[in-house]
């Protein structure tokens, strides 16, 4: 069982994740968007969205540091286990709470604002469920660690070791199996999230427009090579107007 969960599953997820992204990028450029709902409602969005996204950026940095940097390295530069944990817990909690409250605001907004709810697909709902549970489970590990004080499980000796071992294709299943159950849960939900990633609106993260900082303001391009709308079979975005497309049963 452990081998399946910690030795096989991660690789399946990687294949789905990478394969899915490549597939989506090649075949669904048109669907690759944030699908913003700001047009319908922006008061709550203006609070929730930055809270969530900035919180998430910190969370991501935290994960990268915690998972990729071996304990020996931080030890070598004189950071003790206590110092590290205090820092990680502190920053992690703040970022985690910000992310969680951000997403809670966004979900409440999504449910309570009629038009936004109408524009929510099944895919979105699933994505929100998995994303929120991942955040909650992640925060749970932190809360447990808090309550145990200095006896807290040192994930850098279990989860991180396993995580790095994945990259050299010799998964250290024992290390992961030895971690407490809240970590198992968090990792599993995380894997689900990654498997879902390429097929949800989350893909917009991969086209974060950092090149904006460097490109010229005015873009010249020669005429397009792709067919014009009138010249091809109706594509998405060319549905007829009506209330039917608002009807969940006929909506895509």
């Amino acid at each position: 069982m452990d081998v399946v969960l910690w030795g096989v599953l991660p690789y399946l997820v990687v294949v789905t994740f990478v394969g899915g992204l490549v597939w989506r990028y090649r075949y669904d450029q048109f669907g690759w968007t944030t699908r913003s709902s700001q047009l319908y409602e922006s008061r709550l969005l203006r609070i929730g969205s930055p809270l969530f996204h900035f919180g998430l950026l910190f969370v991501i940095v935290g994960h990268v540091v915690g998972l990729l940097i071996p304990e020996e390295w931080t030890d070598a530069v004189g950071v003790t286990e206590e110092m590290y944990h205090a820092g990680a817990l502190g920053i992690g909690t703040i970022a985690g709470v910000a992310t969680l409250s951000g997403i809670v605001i966004l979900i409440v907004r999504r449910r309570r604002t009629g038009p936004v709810f109408m524009a929510t697909t099944k895919n979105d709902k699933l994505m929100y469920a998995v994303l929120t549970s991942a955040i909650v489970a992640g925060l749970a590990t932190t809360v447990v660690a808090f309550s145990q004080g200095s006896d807290a499980h040192n994930y850098r000796e279990s989860v991180s070791v396993w995580f790095r071992s994945l990259f050299i294709l010799r998964p250290d299943v024992e290390a992961m199996a030895s971690a407490p159950v809240q970590f198992h849960l968090h990792v599993l939900i995380g894997l689900a999230l990654f498997a879902l990633f390429p097929f949800s609106r989350l893909v917009h993260a991969f086209t974060a427009p950092l090149h904006y900082l460097f490109r010229p303001y005015v873009v010249y391009r020669s005429r397009d090579r792709r067919p014009t709308p009138g010249a091809s079979a109706p594509r998405r975005g060319w549905d007829p107007v009506g209330t039917r497309d608002r009807d969940p049963s006929t909506r895509r």
């Binding site: 450029q29 048109f30 690759w32 968007t33 944030t34 699908r35 913003s36 917009h204 086209t207 427009p209 005015v218 873009v219 010249y220 391009r221 020669s222 005429r223 397009d224 792709r226 975005g237």
Partner: peptide
């Protein structure tokens, strides 16, 4: 982008990310 030939400004629907 602005088309170099005739200056028409268009949105590339495949590259717009919303």
């Amino acid at each position: 982008y602005k088309r170099a030939e005739d200056g028409i400004v268009l949105v590339d629907q495949d590259r717009c990310r919303g």
